[in-house]
Write a protein that binds this DNA or RNA. Sequence first.
RNA 1: GCCCACAUAGCUCAGUCGGUAGAGCGCAUCCUUGGUAAGGAUGAGGUCACCGGUUCAAAUCCGGUUGUGGGCUCCA
Length: 636
Amino acid sequence: MLRITLPDGSSREVPEGSTLQDVAAEIGSRLAKQAVAGKINGRPADLAALVADGDRVEILTLTSDAGLEVYRHTAAHLMAHAVKDLFGDAIQVTIGPSIENGFYYDFYSPHHAFSPEDFERIEGRMQELVDADLPIVRDEVRRDQAVELFRSLGEEYKVQLIEELTEPVVSLYRQGDFVDLCRGPHLPRTGLIKAFKLTSVAGAYWRGDEKNAMLQRIYATAFPDNKQLRTHLARIEEARKRDHRRIGRELDLFSFNEEAGAGLVIWHPRGALLRTLLEDFERREHLRRGYDLVLGPQILKTELWQTSGHYDNYRENMYFTEVDGQSYGIKPMNCLSHMLIYKSHMRSYRDLPLRYFELGTVHRHEKSGVLHGLLRVRGFTQDDAHILCTPEQLDGEIKGVLAFVQDIMGIFGFEYEVEISTRPEKSIGTNQDWELATNALMGALKDSGLEFVINDGDGAFYGPKIDIKLKDALDRKWQCATIQCDFTLPERFDLNYIGADGEKHRPVMLHRVILGAIERFIGVLIEHFAGNFPLWISPVQAIIVNVTDNQAGYAEQVFHYLRDAGVRVEKDLRNEKLGFKIREAQMAKIPYMLVVGDNEMQSGTVAPRYRNGKNLDPMSAADFVQHVQDECSRYH
RNA sequence: GCCCACAUAGCUCAGUCGGUAGAGCGCAUCCUUGGUAAGGAUGAGGUCACCGGUUCAAAUCCGGUUGUGGGCUCCA
């Protein structure tokens, strides 16, 4: 007998030669049925794997992420099998991992571009392979044998993968006549895959390197049953409805125009108002926290961009213009004028920290393929600040920014993830600088009690950084706030201050944004609220709707009263039925509809209806102003 | 930038085999004065993204450009 340990700490005896499947059966018939794979001493393994005396054993089911991952990875093999059956030697298989909510498989297919029309055939073949219930068998062979095998199959990408492995023995998984190099584990039979769907096809570079061949990636998803699959697809459909590009058009917030140029936002009245409200909010919040408002020009001489290093490192992304033989660079970042402001005086340590804040509009020539609604544009406005301080002040300044970020995200109710990126291979600055800055960033995060992940070697070449990523409706993460230490600019611009010792010292610089780019932030904001903005930031807070023409004069009076009182109000006095006007206002997601009929006119009131359909008791216009003010102040 | 797809009225879309353009919504006018998510009638709107090619004939086929979408790479 063998003695094994289970995750709950209990131990169990099983006969010699037992597999994970046997162990599962030993524990319970239901577990045996639900098992998809397992772990032996923490390492993932097939159900067919043998257990040994003293092993720590865990059974994975579809209720765990790890189990679902195995399930989807097996589904990826199933899809590759089907594609190989249908397209044969014309294609080569490469890799196919499971991902969040699904999986993909990359194929090298130089002669056939997969299209959604192929999906049905591929799904059909997958179903046949499921129905055939093929056993999935693990096979371990020497590396050279594996190379030989895949070479004979014409699978050059697999050959390349194996040749780069260091292990003397590699594992293969076979199902029917399909064989794939794979670490595993996998489900024991193809018949266990229940619900899957191919979702999209896209190009992807081999190994994610743009110098390599372009492969074709088929995205798909798989769930334990059809109900869960349908739920997932419905959720994606729901998310599409809150796509900021769609809502932006429906609410008439902004547009793009082919004649104006790609990635250049055109703000319509309501969108421009929303943006202005955000910007006003930002100015207030920055002034409260000891920032100075500054403004720099849109274009600066090219020589200055050479001094800063942007010309050497960022030229590809910049727009240039030349007048009277003088070349200017249109600013892609706001730091330059901030450096010049610092340099405009002799600085004492008593002046520090200096916090220069600018809602700075920048232009960057982003690659055409990356543009995406408001979330990735070529012209945008950052809520940018550069903090110049002494090394001793660095820690406190970083904490101040983190607290700022938390305040603001709390006001909007955003979910976010925090990442810290450390020194990359190609970088400048001394080890001492990097250590100081990295420790300061990490220490501040720890002290702030924020959870974070470390991206080793992912920092900017000029310094480490903290990134805060918001999630959009489709669960994609978008970087908004970022805090970056910068060693180059104080150096390049020879910034200094006179310390208490009477000597010149180099200040430390922090570059930071809170919302990031206003455009991107609004994009995420739209999706977050599905266009139902909180009252304090709604471009239109209320709309007056009259029941008949009879109240038009009274409605006008109320309208002017509210507008004078600072309420962002519109009026709909058209000759339409009340229900029709309510419906339109509702679809425009306007928070309050103020109904005025004969009753209200006689009593000098309005009858507010909230966009969730609830009615408030009729109140005077003055009371409504108070009501709006109260609601706005509750939100921030 | 790369791969694939797409571009028809303000919006959402139909348009068969290449034979000269259609719907709903919206808009305008008129009727209707109606109390909380669509009242009715009539009408106007399109160089089928742009440029070129094939053809007797192009929204339709081919090439290019621009823009858009899904990804990859890159990034706020």
